[in-house]
Each structure stands twice: as structure tokens, then as C-alpha cells.
Amino acid sequence: MSPDEILSPREIEIASAYAQGDTYQAIAARLGIAPSTVRTHLATIYRKLEVSSKLDLHSRLGGALPTSEMLTDHAAVISELALSLEESLRREQALAEVLRIISRSRGDIDTVMSSILGFALDLCEAEFGILFEHGGQGRYAASHTRGIPEPFRDWLDTQGIFTASPRTGLGRLATSHAVVNIYDVRAEEIFQTDDPLRYATAMLGGARSFVAIPMMSGDSLVGAFTIYRQSVRPFGAQATTLAQTFADQSVIALDNARMIGALRQEAPPA
């Protein structure tokens, strides 16, 4: 049977996009679904088409026959292992690409941060992300964003530098300098108060699950690397570890940009 006879129209659309190189994030944005839903579809597609790699998927969509018959009771395991392997390779490639971007940025911090946030959202299956710079005493400013809903972005732009109350995720991070992982921003008691940051996060940003990673330079907190899901899907250990890696790279990028800026100021005029 051909893929068109085996898969639904939605599965064909997702399979074709993934085989052509689109990420979970890109497919999800185009179809208006969550990145995790894209992954669930792909696991089903791999099982139905009896493939175990993106290359096999591309071949099957092009008319090739299955290379082997997968036993029904093993098919789900095989498809899961195949996707997990591809995701592992994608993580390594993304981290290498981020380091390359940082090394060649020449102080262009906007491009670097946009790239870092983009990779983080894709690999952590999150809808939007914000890099907050910390100004001391719980004060923050949103310096870089990616995928953020416009009403929430406008609210942050209007606030400029703001003080996060101690009960918010950013407030807790400022005190503890530790990861803050919130399962559902609407389920915490602070959501029932009039806290402006929590209201904007939940209602203007549509955020539900949220993780904030401290960005440390030595013993000093320089910012918070935050990513958000718009459904209640708590971030697990793997996603949190990935976010920590991207937060660390963000600190490196900021330090590089500051050094380059200082050298340019010190350089004599031509």
C-alpha cells in the first residue's frame, strides 16, 4: 500500500514536512498544534509506514517499499527509539551550531540570542521564550524574545524595567538562583491575586507550563532564560537540562558582546 492509502491527510502533511527538514516547532506553528503533538503524529507515522529513520521516511513517501517488516508488538518501540535517536542527533547539531554562531557573531547579540532561543524552543518543545536581564533586587527587563504572543510582548515593552514580586517565578529565581519549574502558572495561588506579571504571563501570553533558568556569571545573577508552553505539559529533566545549556551559552554570548563592545570603544579612531 502507498503512504496515501495508509496515512491520513494530516499525517501525510506532517510526514512530508518532516522528511523535507522542517522541525517540530516549524510544523507545529504552521498547523496550529503543539510541538509534542507533531512528535506523537510522527511516532504513529513511523509505525504505520514501517520506517526507522527520516531517510527511510523520505524514501517511503517517494514510493519505495518497506525495507523490512516490523513485528506489530515491536513497532511502537522501534518508532520511539528511532525518533529519540534523531532528536539526540538534532540536539548535538543545534548545540554545535549555537557555538558557531557565538564565535562568529562579532558582538551581534540580537542575532545570537534569537538563534539560541529558537533552538531552545524547538528542542524543548516550547511555544515561546524570553531572556530577561536582571538588574538586581528582583528587577528585570525583557531584552530578547522569540515566538512571544504580541499582547504579552507589548505589555513587557510598556513595563520596561520592572520588579518581580517574590512569589512569581522570576522573583523566586532572583532569591534562590536556582531553576524554577512551574507545572501550571494558573494553578498557583498567586494567579488568584492581582499580581501583574503572573496575569500578563497567563492571560496575555497564554502560558501554562514554564521553566526559568538562572543565568549566572560567577556568583552573580545576570538574567533568567525562560521558556513557556501554552498547554499544561510540565518540563521534564531532559528539557530543563537543555534549557540550562542554552542559558549558559547565552551568558557566554553576552560576555563576548560586552568584551567586543569594550574593545571597540578603546580602539583609536582610524
Rank of each mutant, 00 (worst) to 15 (best):
Ser2Ile: 15
Glu11Pro: 00
Ile12Ala: 08
Ile12Arg: 02
Ile12Thr: 06
Glu13His: 08
Ser16Leu: 10
Gln20Ile: 10
Gln25Phe: 15
Arg30His: 01
Pro35Lys: 00
Val38Thr: 03
Arg39Glu: 10
His41Glu: 08
Ala43Ile: 11
Thr44Glu: 00
Ser52Thr: 13
Asp56Gln: 08
Asp56Val: 11
Leu57His: 00
Ser59Glu: 13
Ser59Trp: 07
Ser59Met: 13
Ser59Cys: 14
Leu65Glu: 11
Val77Leu: 02
Glu80Arg: 09
Leu81Ser: 05
Leu81His: 01
Ala82Gly: 11
Ser84Gly: 15
Glu92Arg: 07
Gln93Thr: 13
Glu97Asp: 13
Glu97Lys: 13
Val98Asp: 04
Arg100Tyr: 02
Asp108His: 03
Val112Asn: 11
Ala120Phe: 01
Leu123Asp: 06
Glu125Tyr: 13
Phe128Leu: 00
His134Phe: 14
Gln137Phe: 15
Tyr140Leu: 15
Ala141Val: 15
Ser143Trp: 07
Arg146Met: 14
Ile148Val: 02
Pro149Met: 11
Glu150Arg: 12
Glu150Ile: 13
Arg153Met: 14
Trp155Thr: 10
Gln159Phe: 08
Ile161Leu: 12
Ile161Asp: 04
Thr163Asn: 09
Arg167Phe: 09
Gly169Asn: 10
Leu170Arg: 03
Leu170His: 05
Leu173Val: 08
Leu173Asp: 09
Ala174Thr: 03
Thr175Pro: 06
Val180Glu: 03
Asp184Met: 10
Thr193Gln: 05
Met203Cys: 13
Ala207Cys: 05
Arg208Lys: 07
Arg208Thr: 14
Ser209Lys: 05
Ala212Cys: 15
Met215Glu: 03
Ser217Ala: 14
Gly218Glu: 02
Leu221Tyr: 14
Gly223Met: 02
Pro234Asp: 10
Phe235Val: 05
Gly236Ala: 12
Ala237Glu: 12
Thr241Met: 13
Thr245Lys: 08
Ala247Gln: 13
Ala257Asp: 06
Arg258Asn: 14
Arg258Trp: 10
Ile260Ala: 00
Leu263Gln: 03
Gln265Glu: 10
Ala270Lys: 04
